[in-house]
Design a protein around this nucleic acid. Sequence first.
DNA 1: GACATTGTACCTATCCGTAGATAGATTGCT
DNA 2: AGCAATCTATCTACGGATAGGTACAATGTC
Lengths: 183, 183
Amino acid sequence: MPDKREQIENAATDAIKKSGVRNVSFRTLAETVGVKSASVHYHFPTKSDLAVSVVDKYTLGFSEALDAIDRKHKSVSSRLMAFARIFEDTLANGELCLCGMMASEVDELDQQTKASLQRFFREAERWLVKTLESQPDEVVSPLPPNELAKILMSGLEGAILIDRAADGRARIKALKSFIRSLF
Amino acid sequence: MPDKREQIENAATDAIKKSGVRNVSFRTLAETVGVKSASVHYHFPTKSDLAVSVVDKYTLGFSEALDAIDRKHKSVSSRLMAFARIFEDTLANGELCLCGMMASEVDELDQQTKASLQRFFREAERWLVKTLESQPDEVVSPLPPNELAKILMSGLEGAILIDRAADGRARIKALKSFIRSLF
DNA sequence: GACATTGTACCTATCCGTAGATAGATTGCT
DNA sequence: AGCAATCTATCTACGGATAGGTACAATGTC
């Protein structure tokens, strides 16, 4: 059993992916991990502290997943498909990408949390650009890697957003078709 | 000055586009239009009633905007660019598409509201398919209209979601490049 | 035309639940 | 003894929702 602190972070991550920061309460979080809400405040004095920790941890985990993709897959196309599969799995869990969800709440986030959030998208897109540039001849598209990366990221975030609301997975499938069409 | 009822709907629409249904309160809404919260409950007994009305009204307005596009633009490419511009304008206002925002809250919506929400995406994508099929030779893509429509819709929803969080408009621009690349 | 009835659109006041946050006592490990 | 982690108890705030009342216009009836 990990630290209570870590359990709280994990519970918060799950809850936020399902219904956002606003819907996560210290009380519910506390019940989930079996402590009192005051104890949650001990580890994370304010909700903002919790949000920043959760985003940073998520970004780290995402980054590690990308490293794992680089190790397991060698072609650009299989790397991109593996990238898409991360989103597909998230959708299968009835969740959104944590940062996609929090992006919808950006109006209510403080500067620190927002900065962490922006870092997530920057890093994800940076990996996509790096991947697309690694084998320039492999990709057949008139669009530069820089723009393709943003199209893919936006498309995948939007796909799970809509598919989840529509109780389907037609959009994530379409995004995978799009990736295949690039090769 | 329109009906109070309509004023309430409009105020709710604006507020939801900025920070979601959860963040809209009967009290704030009432203050915005200059009545008491009980009066808002008079027009919309529950929050769900309000949400359904707002989504349906938004869908109607969106549909009318698409009709206007059909009247003003004749080529597929200019129609799609005009479609993208709807999202671009929304982003410029610091807002999300009302239904994109509500899609992120789908866990907390009741069945009626969810059904209305799904109708919005169905209709928007139906227009895209119809538009893409209207001049099959004009579009150069190996992907079927059906999938292209979902890619475009997901991409645009995701683009404004991320761009708003990132204080930029790079992603909506990339989506417009994508549309141009289809011709 | 006059009077009673009903409906519309608001009001004041209040209920009950939940939110984030804090103070201060308690426990338990080293 | 001292520090970390947790507790109990409580505060203030705001949330949706409801009860019950008022003013006034519309409608129906004699």
